[in-house]
Design a binder for these strands. Structure first.
Lengths: 213, 213
DNA sequence: GCGTAAGCGGACCCCGCGGTCCGTTTGTGT
DNA sequence: ACACAAACGGACCGCGGGGTCCGCTTACGC
């Protein structure tokens, strides 16, 4: 059911894209607190246009986040057929780093109650599925310890991004990513993780509880 | 040069503590966006009192952060004489988790341009020193790979906290901490980290560049 | 006790930001 | 070409939050 409404007029569609891009850039630079006016200015568009296309600032943020998640999922799907399954996961993570160098918006948004948003949840769930398949292939080859799940990876990745963001230095981020990779080395002897990998259900529950509070 | 001014009146000092605690709690629950009015209400104090003690909301935040960092540093110093150096580091991290379950403020603040703040920088630098000594002891015993530095640890820790915060679930955070520990396992053969451990100088530089932008 | 300065509180100001409105422009189907 | 709906833009509004002010209270030195 994508777009049950009739397609947008040509200029409207164009402005929509301009807005999404401008918003993504602005959020990346200054966080979610940038004013709508600023975003409109960057996109070369009136403020009214923003709110006609996205009824609320939150809708705009959600759209940006979903947009980005789709990109990543798409790249992940490509990598499902890569020759070396053990590498594929890390290639994807590397690609995510590339663009997400400062995807503050994505993480700020996903972190807070934003997972309550229908569209974001859908896109996120899709991304988790792709990651899950990539991960299993890597585990089947013995390239990654088998007691971690897709959400473990996404969480760690988020951590890496958040931790290295203030440095604004690709080298340092790469280093953190290497450490993440080190954590995923197969465990020969003992030291297995306690508990089971987190699931989407865990998130939903947490969000629900958090939202109610 | 702590407190060049004459000491506060008894009630003033008491209110100062109430405010710091109330603010810490409020920030932990709702992030840095909680209104000053709300904090004042929680502390059972007038809004005017807040601004007399902390000229600006940012000063209040900084004070909270510094306060917390001192607690952690103090605990770390105790652990310097612990019997098992290999465990001590992780004991400290565990202790940090304890209190930091939702120390959003600390991380939000440190993440953004807040390191520009003189006091925070000092407290942070102190914390890094303590962590560094703990870490070296652990490395001397061979409990931790020797190509990581104190800032690597603090960054990873921040990542773990940020990543698991939305879940609001101690179990999941513990799991991430175990993964962090796995990343620190000594490396027998190859796979050493690229580059050198980040230093405080790296941070200062990043903050400087970021602040100027 | 008493004077005084430090402290208190909350009503108040002001500004920035999300969101609305409406007169004007522009794409599009005939 | 023309008509009309769709889209545009920016002036405008209201609210919420940081910060101020001032009349009242209270701790502390003598």
């Amino acid at each position: 059911m994508p777009e049950s409404t009739r397609p947008l007029r040509a200029d409207a569609e164009r402005n929509r894209r301009l807005l999404l891009d401008a918003a993504a850039a602005a959020f990346a630079e200054h966080g979610l607190d940038v004013g709508v006016a600023e975003i409109a200015r960057r996109a070369g568009v009136g403020q009214g246009t923003v709110f006609r296309r996205f009824p609320t600032k939150e809708h705009l943020i959600a759209a940006v986040v979903v947009d980005r998640m789709h990109q990543v999922s798409a790249r992940g799907r490509e990598l499902l057929t890569a020759p070396d399954p053990g590498q594929a996961v890390f290639v994807l993570l590397g690609a995510m780093v590339e663009g997400a160098q400062s995807d503050r918006a994505l993480f700020e948004a996903v972190a807070d109650t934003f997972l309550a948003n229908e569209d974001i949840r859908a896109a996120h769930s899709d991304l988790v599925q792709v990651m899950d398949r990539l991960l299993r292939r890597a585990q089947d080859v013995g390239a990654v310890r088998d007691d971690v799940g897709a959400l473990d990876l996404l969480m760690m990745f988020k951590g890496v991004c958040e931790a290295s963001r203030p440095f604004n230095d690709p080298g340092i981020m790469a280093r953190q990513l290497e450490l993440m990779r080190a954590a995923l080395r197969p465990v020969d002897g003992g030291e297995r993780l306690s508990g089971l990998p987190p699931t989407l259900a865990d998130m939903e529950r947490a969000v629900g509880a958090d939202g109610a509070a």
